[in-house]
Design a protein around this nucleic acid. Structure first.
Length: 274
DNA sequence: ATTTACACCTGCTTGC
DNA sequence: TGCAAGCAGGTGTAAA
């Protein structure tokens, strides 16, 4: 569920609440969610201080006082909450990172796709980060965006969702950006005009910026919550995502649903044409 | 090399 | 009502 704005919202809260604390224990009931293993990760990080919480794309990065780092990915259904030990447990609670102030960082994940991973060194972390495309608001610019779009023969929406193209764009924000730029998600990337590429670049930044400003999107299954359990508010300004049959906010045409690259996709069929 | 299809899991919603 | 099919905010990997 979480995309860049949701992860960034959680990151800021983690950096405020967790940085400065020591890791005292790590628990899991789903071994594959803790890599390489609960035993190894605990041995290597117990007693270390979390010095900062960073992010690349949708990946959370816990910088530690020693040479190791921890990475955490929420994938589709992960949630992160801060709790007291006696608080009731969510049925999908699968990983707990216990902290030196007595609080528990709880990782819920209905589908168990998410994970916490040990990264042996800063060098290894650099390799992981290098696998991601430009970070919006940082490395992304009109030129490297245009270059990436022009050289690919894939459908534009599939390209936007590829983390090697841009870090952090997911299904909600890809749908919204394409609607904003009036581009059909199945348009061949390399066939977009210069003005379409420019519009799309601005649209991507606009939707991500709005997403961050509004604290993420709590849509449909209501699963997304921030570190304190609060909902986001981007859903108040969502134009097409999961709005099949409802009128396009610009022209009133009914929004249609299609699958693009096995992902649910929503368009205004009048304004977004190939 | 590039692009697509599937797998990983579980639960909720939809339609016959 | 029951039960199968479809759907879900992501991504690593096998296959074409």
């Amino acid at each position: 569920m979480p995309e860049l704005p949701e992860v960034e919202t959680i990151r800021k809260q983690l950096n405020k609440e967790v940085a400065g604390l020591l890791i005292t224990d790590i628990w899991t009931d789903v071994p594959k969610m803790v890599k390489p293993s609960q035993k190894e990760i605990l041995k290597r990080t117990k007693g270390q201080k979390v010095t900062a919480v960073e992010r690349r794309g949708k990946l959370l990065i816990f910088r530690l006082s020693g040479k190791e780092n921890l990475v955490l990915h929420l994938r589709l259904s992960g949630q992160l909450f801060l709790h007291k030990p006696n608080d009731s447990r969510d049925p999908f609670l699968h990983v707990i990172i216990k902290l030196s102030n007595g609080r528990e960082l709880r990782f819920n994940d209905q589908r168990k796709f998410g994970y916490v991973g040990l990264v042996e060194s800063d060098e290894e972390l650099s390799k992981i980060v290098a696998g991601y495309g430009p970070e919006p608001f940082k490395d992304l610019n009109p030129d490297n965006f245009a270059t990436a779009v022009r050289k690919s023969g894939r459908k534009i929406k599939v390209l936007l969702l590829d983390q090697k193209t841009i870090s952090g764009v997911g299904n909600i924000y890809a749908n919204e950006a394409l609607w904003l730029a009036k581009i059909h998600p199945e348009a061949k990337s390399s066939s977009l005009s210069d003005s379409q590429v420019k519009d799309l670049y601005q649209a991507v930044l606009k939707v991500l910026e709005d997403g961050i400003r509004l604290g993420g999107a709590t849509i449909a299954d209501e699963k997304y919550r921030n570190l304190y359990g609060d909902r986001g508010h981007y859903e108040d300004v969502v134009r097409v995502y999961q709005r099949k049959g409802q009128p396009c906010p610009r022209c009133g045409t009914k929004i249609e649903y299609l699958q693009v690259g096995q992902r649910g996709t929503f368009i205004c069929p009048k304004e977004q044409v190939i």
